[in-house]
Design a protein around this nucleic acid. Structure first.
Length: 589
RNA sequence: GGCCCGUUCGUCUAUCGGUUAGGACGCUAGGUUUUCAACCUAGAAAGAGGGGUUCGACUCCCCUACGGGCUGCCA
């Protein structure tokens, strides 16, 4: 309920933010800076904040949140991770030791080794910087593709930068193949990114460095509690019906009492007050700090946790808006603690709802296509996918069909819906059909050839390709997908002698064949243009005392060997006199 | 258990307290038509439930129900 209102407020704020950069209300320096940099958030909320702040503890006041990460396959990803992850045999340390070669080869090492300030989009510029941060553990999920699209549209529509970061810190599940699949998927989708993709794993030393800086600043501490102790605590708390948030006994311990044992570094989170997330999509979301625990930043093996890595990377990359799945909304509050601990500006947040299957349930394998490449293999054009996906969960008035340029111009975080949307293949097809009809013939042919390759079908011969190019004009306005173009293009892809399918066979009965043979001599001497051909066929129909429809059926069957084709006149024009006559003779025989 | 988010036609959505609740996809019925697609006309189709606030709530507040997320030395 309050949602809508919040959204409206956010919109207003956003509008203001865009017009008048500097925030209207007084905010802490850090926030102002952030607002100046970012678009949306910038404005985001501010209004309720004043009151709230009064009741929030001093250090909780500048909370905002932000942070990125994430990526995509929100839906089932969690499940997979959970199961995989809890696997007893996935000790991170081991993976780290032996997994070096797992680093995706497509992820530039050079970049990975750059110092933070060399990373594209580094602070300083006032421009918008967004990023897409997928985990290379599989294909590019359709939901992830949409997240990438939103980030891309937002940045590109504002002259900003769109970066790509591969979250490959899970050495056991990350593979170079998956990274490649993701990059390829994005390339097909038509989304380009600035600079080289960044490997999160390659930045682990920087993450550790930040963890130690927090330690030095006193905003983090060493915790020597063992996992067994923590588990035991949780079990007991749960049994007693209490909160399972773990409060480390080492939080305020005297360093002199520190044992010589493995430890993790935890953020010293505020325990009073609240952390407020100003989200461009979700509105103002408040979390009581006593609901947040001292999350671990650095594991006992010295590797960073996702919560830390994501914040450090987004900060170093200069990300101004974090647009990700709403399954991370809670994380935003926790990640905010790291930003505050380091004294960094919190980016603008935008947690978008996930995509559900046609039945309203979380998208899963039983819904069919999950990976973007599957959609390519199914024959949907990329432009149509972009349009459809952009419109799913986001709207711009009554506009349903639009170009990339319009999407970039119109896209706005405040117009994103907060409820999850379902995939509707009928509408997807409708939109795709419009894009195919509007596409240029040559471009369509290229994409169609890519479709054939992606779906494992044989490539076109030079003759077929040439024929398709000539026929495209009469194929594209009656097909919604590439398979449909192929179907209707059978007349130009097949060569004599044509083998009619059952339906076409039926149309070529004895009577029909007789009529066709009367047509042949007339066509031999006709001038080959539409008017003449239409006149000849119409005259023949009249002479036979039948309508054009009666004669078009057999003619269609003879020319294409199919019953679903372009107009018979278009086929004759594309095929030419010689081929047309030859096919009629074949059929009449 | 605790915290957070969500809920308008079948689906995607519009709606900034006052509308006959609009559009699109899909569907139904007609029309056009050389098949398919397209196109034209018409139609069916929605505010989860309950309390408030208000002259007036889809819009604001609360509760309930249902759905989702988080609650890890996962990301």
């Amino acid at each position: 309920m309050g949602a809508k209102r919040r959204r409206l407020e956010a919109q207003q704020r956003q509008r203001q933010g865009r017009r008048q950069r500097p925030p209207a209300l007084p905010r802490p320096p850090a926030e102002q800076e952030e607002r100046r940099r970012g678009g949306p958030h910038a404005a985001q909320n501010r209004r309720p904040r004043l009151h709230r702040q009064a009741e929030i503890s001093a250090d909780a006041e500048r909370q905002e949140n932000r942070r990125p990460e994430e990526q995509m396959p929100p839906l089932r990803r969690q499940r997979l991770q959970r199961t995989d992850q809890r696997h007893p045999c996935s000790p991170r340390a081991e993976c780290l030791d032996t997994g070096t070669e797992l680093t995706a080869r497509m992820v530039s090492e050079r970049l990975s080794k750059m110092s933070p300030s060399d990373v594209p989009g580094s602070r300083g510029d006032a421009q918008v910087v967004t990023r897409f941060a997928p985990s290379p553990t599989g294909y590019l999920h359709i939901g992830g593709a949409r997240t990438a699209l939103f980030n891309w549209l937002y940045a590109r529509g504002r002259g900003g930068k769109f970066l790509l970061r591969i979250e490959d810190t899970d050495r056991a599940r990350s593979t170079p193949e998956a990274t490649e699949a993701i990059l390829k998927g994005l390339a097909w989708f038509g989304i380009d990114w600035d600079g080289e993709p960044i490997s999160q794993f390659a930045r682990k030393d920087r993450h550790a460095e930040v963890a130690h800086q927090m330690l030095a600043r006193g905003s983090a501490y060493k915790c020597f509690s063992t996992q067994e102790e923590i588990e035991e605590f949780r079990a007991t708390a749960k049994a007693a019906g209490h909160s399972t948030l773990f409060h480390s006994p080492w939080r305020d311990a005297d360093p002199a009492t520190h044992p010589d044992a493995p430890y993790v570094i935890r953020v010293k989170a505020p325990r009073e007050g609240a952390t407020v997330i100003e989200d461009a999509v979700q509105g103002t979301v408040t979390f009581r700090n006593d609901q947040l625990d001292d999350m671990i930043c650095l594991r006992s093996d010295g590797t960073p946790t996702y919560m830390l890595a994501v914040v450090v990377d987004d900060h170093d990359m200069g990300v101004t808006q974090v647009i990700r799945g709403d399954d991370h909304l809670n994380n935003a509050a926790r990640q905010t603690m790291v930003y505050r601990a380091m004294g960094w500006d919190v980016p603008g947040w935008a947690h978008i709802p996930l995509i559900h299957g046609p039945d309203g349930k979380k998208l899963s394998k039983r819904h069919g296509a999950l990976g973007l490449e599957e959609y390519q293999a199914l024959g949907y054009p990329a432009a149509g996918m972009r349009n459809y996906l952009a419109r799913l969960g986001w709207s711009h008035g009554d506009d349903e069909y639009f170009t990339d340029a319009q999407a970039r111009e119109w896209f706005d975080l405040s117009a994103i819906t907060r409820a999850p949307a379902r995939l509707d293949f009928k509408k997807l097809e409708n939109i795709c059909g419009r894009h195919i009809a509007a596409a240029e013939d040559a471009a369509l042919l290229h994409e169609l050839e890519a479709y054939l390759a992606a779906s494992g079908q044989p490539a076109l011969s030079a003759t077929q390709s040439e024929g398709l190019a000539r026929a495209m004009y009469c194929l594209k306005d009656r097909a919604k997908t590439f398979p449909q173009i192929i179907e209707k293009a059978h007349f130009v892809l097949a060569s004599r002698p044509l083998v009619p399918d059952a339906a076409a066979e039926k149309a070529l009965d004895a009577v029909s064949r007789g009529i066709l043979s009367e047509l042949t001599p007339q066509l031999r001497s006709a001038s080959w243009n539409r008017e003449t051909l239409e006149g000849i066929v119409a005259a023949l129909a009249e002479a036979q005392g039948m309508g054009l429809g009666k004669i078009a059926g057999p003619l269609r069957a003879a020319l294409a060997g199919r019953t679903v084709t372009p107009s018979i006149f278009d086929m004759m024009l594309v095929l030419g006199r010689e081929e047309t006559v030859a096919r009629l003779i074949d059929a009449a025989a």
